[in-house]
């Protein structure tokens, strides 16, 4: 554990809590992509199957359980409790265009051709693109509530901080996981456009609205 990794995890945790608070306080899931949340649920479920096979630390186990629990609760809020406020017309990204190629790639490029390892690889690749339905939804509606922007900023920062963690671990421990690093770079790049808008607009008190 190093400072970058810890900050990354805390940023991820903050993102999830911000999203839940937004939905709970406003009693609305407007502007939130249910499809991205389903992809994240797939990511966590696939990656944390190792809860049953290996123990790393109390911290690791608690975070995994929390991430899995909250993402399914988020899906419950979107598709059941606050369903009336869910904007399904704008959540029209075709997720099969992500799942199929990512699944194929996980089969072809992995550390070891073993079931759990392929599933782990699938989760890493899928996570890198799981935010696309959410970003697509914002580009379709042309705007994002400020609280949604905070959520996305925290969520994007998490993987950017992991990149710092991997650079640190490479020099300090000789640790290098090419699959995670490449996927992490892709994931962070997808947020760059959003980071720019966040810094130039949201930090100056304006909400994100894109030209029609």
């Amino acid at each position: 554990m190093n400072i970058f990794r810890l900050c990354g995890d805390m940023s991820h945790l903050a993102a999830i809590i911000i999203l839940l608070l937004k939905m709970w306080k406003t009693r609305s899931v407007a502007g939130i992509s249910g499809k991205s949340q389903i992809l994240f649920a797939t990511v966590f479920t696939a990656r944390y199957l190792d809860l049953f096979t290996s123990f790393i630390s109390i911290y690791n186990t608690c975070m995994k359980v929390f991430f899995i629990g909250t993402v399914y609760f988020t899906i419950y809020l979107i598709y059941m409790k606050f369903k009336a406020t869910y904007d399904s017309n704008h959540d029209s990204f075709r997720v099969e265009f992500l799942i199929v190629p990512v699944g194929g790639l996980a089969f072809l490029v992995n550390h070891e051709f073993a079931p759990l390892e392929i599933i782990w690889t699938f989760s890493i690749y899928l996570e890198s693109v799981a935010i696309l339905p959410q970003l697509f939804m914002i580009s379709k509606t042309g705007e994002a509530e400020t609280i949604t922007s905070h959520y996305l900023f925290a969520l994007g920062s998490y993987r950017a901080l992991y990149l710092c963690n991997w650079i640190y671990r490479y020099y300090a421990e000789g640790f290098f996981d090419l699959i995670a690093v490449v996927a992490g770079v892709v994931q962070t790049i997808l947020y760059c456009d959003f980071f720019y808008l966040y810094i130039t607009k949201v930090m100056k008190g304006k909400k994100i609205s894109l030209p029609a």
């Binding site: 995890d9 190792d50 070891e112």
Partner: peptide, 10 residues
């Protein structure tokens, strides 16, 4: 049981 494939990150 193979340590090499243990992923210690989230």
């Amino acid at each position: 049981t193979d340590d090499e494939n243990q992923h210690d990150e989230l």
